[in-house]
Design a protein around this nucleic acid. Structure first.
Lengths: 153, 153
DNA sequence: ATATGTGCAAAACATTTGCAGTGGT
DNA sequence: ACCACTGCAAATGTTTTGCACATAT
């Protein structure tokens, strides 16, 4: 998106501005938190870390920023078994991967092994399903559930 | 509850009894609700329907029954974007399928087309992942997100 | 200038829990 | 008779909302 020299790192300013939204200190803090970790953080955990970067930020802003980013397709929202949503930067930022979810401790492990075959099959399936169900597919979620090695009994 | 001489339909009585749990009127109502629909109902929706079968049932019992059934592996818990969990009988009861989730209206469409290729690839992947991450995989969730035809703009 | 973004406190919401009583085995 | 199960009401924890003010463009 060649739009000159003066927009912030990662083009975030442009991503917001281009859609009629504004880049603010609060949003920057949330994005920096998400950019600097591989963990899958909840809104509250993001809030705690973001406050270190910008002590003025409120939890409400974190929620609203996450919603905005989610609508923009820049983050993915994960809903594991426990009832707090978790968030990660979308694939365009971090590389495509799928998840192993531990049903005991709720840990989420990313994997990107064997992804190529999966993605190939999935995109064929997407095509067929789109046609058959007249459904516009934007995204997919692949998760395996089980017990991680720490939780194995 | 007249269950005749042996164990009730579907062997539910036996499934509970065999694990040291009891079959009760409340549980029967919840199971009958789940058995008689293809929809993905929330706890509250199950409660409303179960109350028609058994007016004495309480919402708490619905939640506790769903948790029990989930632990027993008899139902799957789905966590779509909105924040209420939804439930469906496990594959052993209903046939294996995957999901299309509409991000506008939260409708969930089951599909079982093209499932064979998917399942084949998935079970190979499961094997490799289990070994590599020392993770005991019990289940998987495949969902495509997008817009259903009613919501297409 | 102006509409978008914000923090705060209160509300909304699904889900869980404590407890005393009920009921399956 | 025993202990799992129950409903109720209250508690919990997350996410949302109303509002007056602040701020990016």
């Amino acid at each position: 998106m060649g739009r000159g020299k003066c927009f912030g790192q990662g083009g975030w300013h442009g991503k917001f501005h281009g859609r009629g939204y504004r880049m603010t200190a609060g949003r920057e803090a949330v994005i920096n938190v998400l950019s600097s970790t591989k963990e899958h953080l909840s809104a509250d955990e993001i809030f705690i870390r973001a406050r270190k970067l910008n002590p003025d930020i409120g939890l409400t802003t974190v929620y609203r920023t996450l919603e905005r980013l989610s609508i923009m397709g820049e983050i993915h929202r994960l809903d594991p078994g426990d009832k707090r949503a978790r968030f990660e930067l979308a694939e365009s930022e971090k590389g495509h991967h799928h998840h192993l979810v531990c049903t005991k401790c709720n840990r989420i492990i990313d994997y990107d092994d064997f992804i190529d075959d999966e993605v190939k099959l999935l995109s064929e399936t997407e095509k067929k399903l789109s046609k058959k169900y007249d459904f516009k597919i934007n995204n997919h979620l692949i998760q395996f559930y089980g017990e991680c090695k720490e939780c194995a009994e």
